[in-house]
Amino acid sequence: MPTVPRSPDVTPTPRMTGRPAGSPFRVRVPAALLAVLLGVSDLARAAEDPPAGDLPTVNDEPEAPPDAASMDADDRQRAMDAFHRASDSYNRADYQAALSDFLEAATLYASPDFQYNIGLCYEKLNKPEEAIAAFQTYLKTKRDVPDRANVEDRIARLREELERRANEPAAKPIPDGPPPPAPRDRSKPLVIAGAAITAVGAAVALGGGIGLGLAAKRRSDDLDAVQSGGNPDDLTFGDAGELEDEGKRLELGQIVTVAVGGAIALAGVALLAVGLSRRKQAKAGRAAALTPNFGRSAVGLSFSGRF
């Protein structure tokens, strides 16, 4: 049986719009509040209206609070406004908004019928404990509850639901997809290879740079001694030309060696970085990854991950 907010057994009955035909329901409105708002004759007439369809009805009339007549007119109006908003929200199946407005109405006007409607909202929101509490409050505070048996039956079903939940094992979170394979620590070979390649590259760059650079500098110094230092070795113009050629060849070799060694070292550093990144990733269990890219003319790193 669908759970519907009980329509008040007093008029006017705020019918919920937008519901499919054949499933109307009523929310309960405190009769004393209506009496204050509409006058006693209207309240009596509303109380005589038959319930709509097979909807569960509340035939008892809430007792007007002793100070209902002396309620502030603004509070009364605000309580009715909250009630109407709650009814509309309930009709739109926006039970959270309906609950909020019913609670506001209850704070403005203490009526057992509001507790009944609050219980309905909690029930829709799948909060059986809160719903049971609201229904019990309704039963305790409502005098002459005509549908006590129905409400008690509702409380019993809610308690059964609570027990069922308590007996169920803890629900496991449903994963989005197949579980990821356990990350393997593939960082060690990369770290070793990266360190080795870095060392080789650095050795090539330094060796070539220093060795060939010193040799080139010697040729440069020798040529400088020929041209500016009195030519102590009596080198001819042809000898000086050979010195220059040798020096430039050595310089070219120096540049090439440093460039190649540097490139090798950079590749090694990239591998090392990838290895260290994967090691860190393996420890942190994150999906981010650094991937080296080797091309004909470029070496680089790609960073990928989930955000």
């Binding site: 220093i210 010193l214 080139a216 040729r219 440069s220 041209q227 000898d239 020096g247």
Partner: peptide, 20 residues
Amino acid sequence: ALTGGCFTTDLDPTQVGAFA
């Protein structure tokens, strides 16, 4: 340290009294 020096002198064929 990386370069160890380089070739910085150009042969100047107009140098007078320098070449043997």
